[in-house]
């Protein structure tokens, strides 16, 4: 971490007890400009990260509506765990998480692998652009379009009817059986975007010699892909999996815009949306904080597990 040290002030020698304070004060005094330079960052971090974090955890034990704060102990948590709606929300989130993990490991990888295996040239560049470009369309706009797509007279039903599959039409966002899957299906075929970009960059950085060697050995394209390329991009895949996990753990834009958690109490409700609604609709900041805190603990736990795994992998290697 401190490999390159360019010190204006000399590193402070490890002094013995009595001298220590004096050296420290001297060190701070001599480096005052450094502290001034990092001060703004710390001010903002305290105001918008440390304080809110502490405040959120504290207030999850209170009834809190801005006008008054009343300590109520674990009541918010109890309410959350007693409420069948909250359980359904976590179940929905799990469904979304698992589906998104499957998605992130398949279609963007397929798209990237196909593009990577084109001969370099204008066509390859064109396809790359084609699948990178949609990244600029704000996710909210995508969700919005898909909401219309799923409507009674929307695009999906129109296409189905045109194909003579009128029997398959649904009010996709208005039926309990389809609403959650419709939200997961948003963005089909999920090729374009960030995941594609990262897979493609990883695949293109694989040295050509490795693949040529395999080709000489007579390995088929499929074997080459699964035995050579896939293991080589495992790291990027891990990163994407973690990113997907963290993103969908807290993301609730799609259910918010498409269904507001409906149909019904828990059709597409996720904990993040429950928190948002507690705040926006009910001004119940305490309950919102409790949901936020649970989400925080879960995310933190997953991150730590991820850290442990990656560290073990590193030490194995």
């Amino acid at each position: 971490m401190m490999s390159q040290e360019l010190t204006i002030a000399k590193p402070i020698p490890r002094a013995k007890s009595s001298q220590r304070v004096a050296t420290l004060v001297e060190g701070v005094r001599r480096n005052w400009l450094l502290y001034v330079l990092i001060l703004p960052t710390f001010l903002f971090s305290i105001a918008f990260y440390y304080y809110p974090m502490a405040s959120g955890i504290y207030h999850s034990f209170t009834y809190w509506d801005i006008k008054r704060t009343i300590w109520i102990g674990f009541e918010n948590y109890q309410r959350m765990f007693d409420d069948p709606v909250a359980l359904a929300a976590w179940r929905n989130m799990l469904t979304i998480l698992v589906s998104q993990l499957v998605i992130v490991m398949t279609t963007p990888l397929l798209g990237a692998a196909l593009v990577a295996h084109l001969r370099p040239g204008l066509a390859q560049y064109g396809w790359r652009m084609m699948f990178v470009m949609p990244i600029v369309v704000p996710a909210t706009v995508v969700v919005f379009v898909w909401r219309w797509f799923y409507g009674g007279d929307g695009g999906l039903n129109t296409i189905l009817r045109a194909l003579g599959l009128g029997a398959l039409t649904h009010l996709w966002l208005g039926e309990n059986a389809t609403a959650l899957w419709a939200i997961i299906g948003t963005g089909f075929p999920w090729v374009a975007g960030l995941n594609f970009l990262i897979y493609l960059a990883a695949l293109q950085s694989i040295p050509e010699e490795l693949l040529d060697a395999a080709r000489v050995d007579g390995a088929s394209a499929f074997r080459r892909f699964f035995q050579i390329e896939l293991p080589l991009i495992r790291n990027q895949m891990m990163v994407l999996i973690v990113l997907t996990f963290i993103f969908y753990l807290r993301s609730f834009d799609a259910p918010l815009i498409m269904t507001n958690g409906g149909p019904g109490m828990a059709g597409t409700l996720v904990p993040g949306l429950q928190m948002y609604r507690a705040v926006r609709d009910d001004l119940d900041l305490g309950y919102g904080s409790a949901i936020g805190t649970v989400l925080f603990v879960v995310t933190l736990g997953l991150m730590l597990i991820n850290q442990l795994i990656s560290r073990r992998q590193k030490s194995d290697a």
Binding site: Y49, Y51, M53, S55, S289, T293
Partner: peptide, 18 residues
């Protein structure tokens, strides 16, 4: 900070703004 998900900050930051 990198470890803190934005969800836990959502409500208290809102309170701060208010």
């Amino acid at each position: 900070i990198l470890l803190v998900p934005s969800t836990v900050l959502f409500v208290p930051t809102y309170q701060l703004i208010i």
